[in-house]
Computed example of a mutant assay.
Amino acid sequence: MSAETVVSPVRTEPEDLPTRPGAVHHVLAVADDPDAGVTDLARAIAVDPALTASMLRLANSSYYGLTARIGRVDLAVAVLGFTTVRTVALLSAVGTEGDVPAGFWDHAAVTATAAGLCAPLLDVDASDAFCLGLLHCVGALLLHRVRELPALCLPEPADIDALRAREVKRYGVAHDTIGAQTLRAWNFPATLCDLIGAHHDTSRRDPLARVLATARLCTNLAAVDAPASPDDLARVETASSGRVPAEDVGRWTRQVQRRSADLLQVLQLL
């Protein structure tokens, strides 16, 4: 098979995702139930020791800044919230350590942390922003499961349209499109799905889109071992609607890198 041959279609239905038997499916079903409470979701998580450990590690990570460690799943659910629990469960189903594109978890950790920190500056819910940062490139995991992914979209290449065109030729679909389709199949919020499907559209001005754009720029800066150029600084300031001034970008990026280190360890153990 040549490098340009389209492989079998990427499937997005819940039953097509690899997972521990029943566990993640049940967690997502409970999280999607409007009548379910924290206790119900905690019980669903507790069936799977590995998923339980992931939730506790995340809740106790420095990102959440708790003053005392927690050891109960129901408390972890209360700290994380239903959307974050669903996000971690989905990621644990789609990708595991050693089965993800190189650098994927690093970029996810930085983008999620940056989005969570930027959210209050633009009056956006921090949990929604954090989950968007974690999940916005989930399509890359799905493509990689079918066939090794040649490149991630972070650090963002000079010609993102060319990258997407190569993905369509290789897989029959681009990472942003398949990511949005998958999350819709899992009944994730429509706004989040729409933003994931359009995360390369920098013309969007709604606050959550601005948060993601700022977070992705931060991830680009963190991935490059060189001082940011004046143009880089200006792009961050513009993306954040001036809430992250150019003179603060360096300090802000360093803060994100420090905060994301603990989160990265959690993600690598999913």
Rank of each mutant, 00 (worst) to 15 (best):
T238M: 11
V124K: 08
T177R: 15
W186I: 13
A213I: 04
L183T: 11
T253Q: 15
P230D: 05
V7K: 01
G133V: 09
P227H: 09
V224S: 12
T96G: 12
R147I: 00
L122W: 04
D225F: 05
A102H: 05
A89M: 12
T87D: 15
S54H: 10
P34Y: 08
D106N: 03
A228H: 01
P227C: 11
N187Y: 09
R166W: 00
E15H: 14
D159Q: 06
V138I: 15
L56G: 05
A76H: 14
A215L: 06
V110R: 03
C131K: 09
D159I: 03
G139Q: 10
R204L: 09
K169D: 13
L122F: 08
A46S: 01
A76V: 14
V110Y: 04
A76R: 15
R254M: 05
W252V: 07
A174R: 11
H26S: 13
D128N: 12
L149D: 01
I178D: 06
A246F: 10
Q257D: 00
A261G: 08
S61T: 07
A223M: 01
L152T: 00
C193T: 06
T19Q: 15
G37T: 02
R86D: 10
P14S: 14
A222F: 01
L195A: 10
R69Q: 10
L149M: 03
Y171T: 08
S127R: 04
R205H: 09
G179H: 12
P157I: 00
R166S: 03
L91V: 09
T39V: 13
A140N: 08
L263D: 01
P227Y: 09
W105T: 13
G197Q: 02
Y63G: 00
A162L: 13
D128P: 05
D32V: 13
T111H: 03
P18V: 11
T67G: 11
A126M: 00
G95L: 08
R184K: 02
P21L: 10
A126Y: 04
P189V: 08
R145Q: 01
V7L: 04
V244Q: 14
L195N: 11
L163P: 03
E237G: 04
L183W: 13
L41N: 06
P34I: 06
Q268E: 14
L269H: 14
V224Y: 11
I160M: 02
D33S: 13
W105P: 07
H25W: 15
L66R: 11
A140D: 02
Y63E: 03
S240I: 12
V256P: 07
V7E: 00
L269Q: 13
L152R: 02
H144Y: 11
E4Q: 05
L212M: 02
Y63K: 04
W105A: 15
V6I: 12
C118M: 15
S229H: 03
A151N: 06
R259Q: 12
T12A: 12
H175N: 08
A50Q: 15
D128H: 14
T87P: 13
V249I: 03
L132D: 02
R251Y: 09
T83I: 15
T191L: 13
H199D: 10
S54D: 11
A29Y: 07
T5W: 07
P150F: 04
S260A: 14
F104Q: 12
A180G: 06
T253M: 15
A89H: 07
A234D: 09
P21W: 04
I70V: 10
S260G: 04
A109K: 05
V79S: 09
A261F: 04
T219L: 00
H136T: 06
L132K: 06
F82L: 05
L135K: 08
G71E: 06
